[in-house]
Computed example of a mutant assay.
Amino acid sequence: MPLDATARGVYPIAPTPFHPDGTIDVDSIDRLTDFYVGCGATGLTVLGVMGEAGKLDQAEGIAVATRYIRRAAGLPVIVGVSAPGFAAMAGLAHASMEAGAAGVMIAPPNSLRTDDQIATYYRQAAEAIGADVPFVIQDYPLNFSVVMTPGVIRRIVQENAACVMLKHEDWPGLEKISQLRAFQADGTMRPISILCGNGGLFLDFECERGADGAMTGYAFPDMLVDVVRLSQAGERDAAHDLFDAHLPLLRYEQQPGVGLAVRKYLMARRGLIASDAQRRPAGGLTATARAEIEYLLARLAQHDPRALPR
């Protein structure tokens, strides 16, 4: 089914698993997808920033997206299609939708500065991929250097019927969520889904501000599923207790430059992927860093048995 504004829950940002020689590990894609389905994810997002999409050629990107889509057992899959030009974006978007994707995600190029430039870019992107392709705005100023105010997000939503979701990764961004929901309440913006990124660092309060869930890539997506479920059920203290137990490890994984190395190390340690390999250029972990991760895991295991060694 096509993505729409009612989407909620957790859409993990899936990594692209590689063998140590840099080739794509399709068996790990299958194993990881099965885990996402089994732990209660309501969808998946592939070829995002942490999916090393920029290290894949277009044929590889389509192959990875198709493998996830076919293995996901009917879960909606969003495919990141950001590209320097609209021709490449449209090609990947169309191929992904033909493979069964639910929608696509578009990040702004870092050359955009004004609200008019941002709104024009998204209008042209929507025209390029086609009015029948649902799309997600990726609002990640810390990475893309493009600042989207609540007003320009409202403008994009109102000007493009196919815009159904915001991936919210501004920081600090809690007030932005509140403002966007206020726009919906006063009727100046139609409803959209809001899923949050940033590794889930602020997920506890983002849900309380009106976010519909998470779209991020922490190595314990099953924890994110539980936090969103508890929050939506009104079990505030239980949601915060679980989130607080994971926060030191989650914070460690969010380090710029080595965050993906940490995430893949943890996923390999959990048996979700066969190798923590990244495709070059890539950062790595020192022995000291690995020891710090193990220390944090041991502390986490006192509160959450999912952190125990396999």
Rank of each mutant, 00 (worst) to 15 (best):
Q117W: 01
R229W: 08
G213W: 01
L247Q: 13
A7G: 04
P20D: 09
A289G: 02
D170K: 07
L3Y: 05
Q278E: 08
L195Q: 00
P281Y: 01
K55T: 00
V258R: 07
A239T: 12
T6N: 15
L242S: 04
D304P: 08
R280D: 06
Q124E: 14
A73N: 09
A131Y: 04
V164L: 09
Q302R: 14
A88L: 13
P305T: 05
P17N: 13
L3P: 14
L32E: 08
R123N: 05
L201H: 00
P191Q: 08
V228K: 07
L32H: 10
L260D: 01
R251W: 05
G200N: 00
P309S: 01
D170V: 06
G187Y: 03
T16W: 02
D34T: 13
Y265I: 00
L247A: 08
R279N: 10
E235T: 07
M165Y: 06
M148P: 09
G61Q: 06
P172D: 08
D304M: 03
P134L: 06
P191F: 03
T216C: 14
R71V: 03
P2S: 12
Q124K: 14
T286D: 01
G40L: 08
D304N: 06
D244M: 13
D115G: 07
P2M: 13
A126D: 11
A126K: 12
I13M: 10
R306L: 13
R306C: 09
L174R: 06
R190N: 03
P134M: 15
I62K: 04
C163Q: 12
A65R: 04
V77N: 05
F183I: 14
Y218F: 14
Q58V: 13
I177R: 07
T45H: 14
C196Y: 07
T6E: 08
G54I: 01
A59Y: 03
G103V: 10
M50G: 12
A301I: 03
L201G: 06
I153D: 00
L224M: 15
D25Y: 03
